[in-house]
Design a binder for these strands. Sequence first.
RNA 1: GUCCCCAUCGUCUAGUCAGGUCCAGGACACUGGCCUUUCACGCCGGCAACACCGGUUCGAAUCCGGUUGGGGACGCCA
Length: 468
Amino acid sequence: MIVTRFPPSPTGYLHIGGARTALFNWLFSKQQGGKFILRIEDTDEQRSTDDATAAILESMEWLGLSWDEGPYFQSRRYDIYNEVIDRLIADGQAYHCHCSPEDLERQRQNARSKGLKPKYDGTCRDLGLDPAPGSVVRLKIPLSGITQFIDLVKGPIRFDNEELDDLIIRRSNGSPTYHLAVVADDISLGMTHVIRGDDHVNNTPRQILIYKALGEPIPKYAHLPMILGPDKTRLSKRHGAMSVLAYRDMGYLPHALLNALARLGWSYGDQEKFSMEEMIAKFSLESVGKAAGVFNAEKLLDLNAWYIRESSDEFLAEQLTPFLETQGFTNLDAGKVREVVSILKVRSKTLVEMAEGAHFCLAEEITYEKKGDDKFLKPGVLELFEDLNNRLAAMPEFNQESIEKLFIDFLEQKEIKLRKLAQPLRVALTGKTASPGIFEVMEILGKEKVVERIRKAAAHIKNKKQDA
RNA sequence: GUCCCCAUCGUCUAGUCAGGUCCAGGACACUGGCCUUUCACGCCGGCAACACCGGUUCGAAUCCGGUUGGGGACGCCA
C-alpha cells in the first residue's frame, strides 16, 4: 500500500503553497487507495506555536483534506529519533563533533572565499571524540561518489557527494535536526512516496544518505514546482492574502480553491474544472509540470463564481450563513436566505459579495447609494411611483408573472419604456443601481415591503425637493 | 560564488517522452459585438507565446550542444 504525508511545520499559517502540496499528496493517496498522514514538524521549539498548529488543522479540515493517520507531533517522538541517532553512532556512521558555531562560520567563509560551496570541513570526522557539553552529532557522508534518484516529476537527478558535508543530526541541546527526524519518521510510518516542494530537491541526497547509512529502503520522491508571486519571486506575505483561511474569509468555496490549486502545476489536457472525484481519478504525478508558476488569483475568482453558480441553493445558503452573521444578521429566516441565494448566485463571485447583495432582502431598512439616489430618485418619477404603488397594493396575487403583466399594461398606458421605470424602482427597492431582475426583487420582497419602500422613496424625493 | 532545477500568449497551461496533422490549442485577464429592466450570466469575435544562437534532419515548439534569463539550495530552520 502506498503511504504519503503532509508535514507542515507550525511556524505560521497554512498558505496556498503548502495547501497544494497537501492536496497532491492527498489526491495521490486517494487515487492509489493508500494512506495519507498528517505530521506536525515542531522540532524548532522557538518558532513553533499551538496557534499555528490549530490554524493548519482548521485549514486542512475546511479544505476537506482529511488524513487517515495523525496528526503526529515530532516533539513527542524524540525516543524514535534518539534510537536512530545512537544506532548510527554505534555503527560508526555518525560521530561527535566539538566544533563551535564560530569555528563553523570561519570554515564557511573560508570555503566561500575560495569560490566553493560553504560547508563543514570535517575537522572532527575521524577524531573519535566523546560527547561533551556543546557538542553535536554529525553523519558521515561519503567523501566521493554520487547520490542519485529518479524524481517522479523531474526525472533523474544526481549530486556529487563532494558537494555535501557532514550534516548535523543531533543538536548540542540534544534535539534531532530536521533531516534526521524526517527520515526516522518516514521510516517508522512506512512512507512510500515523498511528494513535496521543489525547494527540497537539494535536501534529498542528504536524506537518501541517511536511509543508506541505516540500511533502509528509500522512498520514491516527487518534487513539485514552486508557486511564485506575481513578481515571480517566491511566495511570501508581502504578496498579500496567501493563507488558506484568508481565502475562506474572503468568501471562497473550498472546492474552488482546490480546483485552482490543482491546476497550478498539474493539468489534464484542456480541462479546467474538476469535481473532487474527477481530480482523484485523473491526477497523476507524471502530468505535473516541472516549471515554477505564478498563482493566478483572477482565475480563482472566476472559478469561485462558477462553483457558486453551479451549487445548490441549499448548500450555498448554508455556506452563506456565517457571512450574513458577521454582517450583523441574526435570527435568519432559512427559507428567505435560500430564496435570495437563488437569484444572487449567478451574479456573485464570492460569498462576501453575495452576503452584501442579500441586504435589500434581509435588512429592514435600506439606504440609498448616493449615485443612484442622485440619478434616479428625481421628482419626475413621483407620479409614476404613486400611481404604480396604488395598483401594486391592489394586486390579489403578487408574483413575478402577475407583476410583469401589470407592468406591461402600466407601461403601455404611460407610454414609457421599462428602463425608465426599472432603474428608479431598483434604487427605491434595493438602494442600489445593480441588483437582480426587478420583478424577482419585488416577488422576493413581497407586496407589503415593496409598497412601503416605494412610498418611502416617494417621500424621500419630496423631501429633497423641499430642501432644494 | 558553488551546486541543483527550470524555460510555449500578461497569467495558468495543451502539444515535447514516440520530430511532420501546430504560420501552435484551451482557460483567466483584457477587448469589440449580440442578448437585455440594471448588474451579471450566456453567445459570437479580437488581441496575444514556442527566450536566444548553433547543430542533427527532407522537416524541430518537439532531439543535441551552448548562451541568456529565472527559481531553489548551500543553518545546531523546516
